[in-house]
Simulated assay, not measured.
Amino acid sequence: MAHTKPRVTIEYCTQCRWLLRAGWMAQELLSSFTDELGEVALIPSSGGVFRVCVDAEQVWERKADGGFPEIAVLKQRVRNIVAPQRDLGHIDDKH
């Protein structure tokens, strides 16, 4: 049986017009984790939600984590799940 690569979901509020932010974060994750991710899905929602999950594990939630993630922090949290041994270079040096 083939190992399936992790799926990242970005659930965003359409009422708040956060599609561009969600799309940009999806692009950044796909660029950084070219070989590690199987999919990044954008999920339209409402009620001010902005949530990022890797498979079933939540890595960022706007209300719980206090706003939107810096892209470096989001990449580190995703990396810690999909490729914990991987060095993110300058991103790891700054944080």
Rank of each mutant, 00 (worst) to 15 (best):
Y12L: 04
A83D: 05
L20P: 07
E11F: 09
A83E: 01
P84T: 15
L20K: 11
I71N: 10
E70K: 15
D65Y: 03
I43N: 03
G66Q: 00
H3Q: 12
R17K: 14
T34R: 13
V59T: 11
E36C: 00
T9N: 07
K63N: 12
L29Q: 08
A83S: 08
E57W: 09
P6T: 02
R62S: 09
F50A: 01
V8S: 08
D93C: 09
P6A: 02
S31H: 11
E36V: 00
P44C: 08
I43M: 04
C53S: 15
R86S: 12
K94Q: 15
I91Y: 11
W18N: 02
P6V: 00
L29I: 13
N80R: 15
F33R: 06
K63V: 15
V49D: 01
S45H: 14
A56E: 12
I43Y: 01
D92R: 14
G48F: 04
R86W: 07
S46F: 12
L42W: 06
V40A: 01
T14G: 00
H3C: 00
V82G: 05
P44F: 06
D87H: 15
I10W: 01
S32E: 11
R51G: 05
M25E: 13
S45L: 03
R77K: 12
G48S: 06
G89C: 10
R77T: 06
T34Y: 07
S31R: 14
V59Q: 05
Q85A: 15
A83L: 04
K5V: 06
E11Q: 15
E36F: 00
I10Q: 01
T14K: 05
H90G: 06
C16F: 08
Q85L: 05
P69C: 09
W60S: 04
V73A: 11
R21S: 05
Q76T: 14
Q27C: 06
F50T: 01
Q85E: 11
H95F: 15
D92F: 08
S45T: 07
F68I: 01
S46R: 12
A64C: 13
V78R: 03
I71M: 10
R79M: 03
Q58A: 13
G89L: 09
D92H: 14
G48L: 04
E39C: 08
T34P: 00
